[in-house]
Design a protein around this nucleic acid. Sequence first.
RNA 1: GGGGAGAUUCCAGAGCGGCCAAAUGGGCCAGACUGUAAAUCUGGUGGCUCACGCCUUCGCAGGUUCGAAUCCUGCUCUCCCCA
Length: 417
Amino acid sequence: MSSAPTNLLGTLRERGFVHQVTDEAALGALLASGRATVYIGFDPTAPSLHVGHLVQVLMLMHLQRAGHRPVVLVGGGTGRVGDPSGKTEMRQLLGEDAIRENLEKFRRLFSRFLDFEGDRAIVVDNADWLLQLRYVEFLRHVGRHFSVNQMLTAEAYKLRLETGLTFLEFNYQLLQAYDFHVLHERYGCRVQMGGSDQWGNICAGVDLVRRMDGAEVYGLTIPLITTSDGKKMGKSEKGAVWIDAELYSPYDFFQYWVNVDDRDVERFLKLFTFLSLEEIRALTQEGGAALRAAKKRLALEVTALVHGREEAEKAERAAAALFSGSGADLEGAPVTELRSSELPIGILDLLVRTGLASSKGDARRLIQQGGAHLGDQRIDAIDLAVDASRFQAGELLLRAGKRKFHRVKLIDGGAAR
RNA sequence: GGGGAGAUUCCAGAGCGGCCAAAUGGGCCAGACUGUAAAUCUGGUGGCUCACGCCUUCGCAGGUUCGAAUCCUGCUCUCCCCA
């Protein structure tokens, strides 16, 4: 492993990873000298990681590459409580089974990004220590260090003080702070990082470790990544952009990045890829239509990171084939299989079948508005019956709108010519 | 514990006995323009139907009425004020 660069923190800041730091000088020094143990917590409230989590993952990767030891804390314990920070409403509490399932998933996902050989990185579950806490004892040892007055004035709770905050959630911060204490004690962890909405919780942890252990530890928050049109990063029309191929195909994932707003390209390249700042500058310098190349690079890099080089290139080839017309390699594009016995099939049904339309009414509208294409021909009849003659080599290409493509593949000895 | 307000289609928010599948805005979808970008303009936006139309939807369950999102009863939930 490479030795720690002297100004890792500066580099991270330059790439857009740093929002707030509790003690910049001291943290900078810590990261510049030897190996530090750093943790980020993830509550298993979702079935997978999505693009929103990716920044934190990249942060840990940067740290590991610089020779530090990342600790991934999965919140098997805290996930049972629900963090009210920055939220408008109480989050739906998950059942035990769901939490356990998500937790396992998380562990697997993280191994794609970090090297867990030896103790180069660690995964821990705070359920291991939180679930066995005893109430009165906890209040006496930990609760005494918290000021309700202070907590109530925290920005993170402001919204909730208007709409309602349960005592359950109000305790979240104590648990998270306690996590830091435990990690400090067990692993010598001296840094906690997290999203900017975690500032309050992180500071609480820093304070608690100082009070309980008499040690100086640090906190850093990562900016909330939004897109330039003001949305939270990682939301698409289809919902969250998952990094799990089952939930979000590599092709769609690739497309998500190709379609980012011009204004976001440079920022995203810095955050989501390991390209050097010089390379990024070279890619984005020109602006305008030239940014398309930068977007493709961004998409390729991030997709490779998440799904592997092979899948990324497949997606890239499919996109190139679809969008530049040269019908070359469509392997990465989405497919639906169709039995040849189902064959003459109404175009409306086919559009629904492939997911290009959500209902027959939707499909009808699509056609009536001129958005549906079969191959490169616009479909103008809503009663079109698709039969074998429409297929070439057992395949047919449907398009809805400008950028949604879908292949239909004939199976089982069909008389596809 | 007492008093008040409210729950409407993805969201916000009109509607207050028939003209309501439900105004308006946002979002989303499509078309034009483009660079698989943004902005802009246009159209669309519960399901089934070529269509007349039919079906499901206005917190939940009943009721009044020829007819209810709109009136009545009970229930659930949310917010506000007082304790």
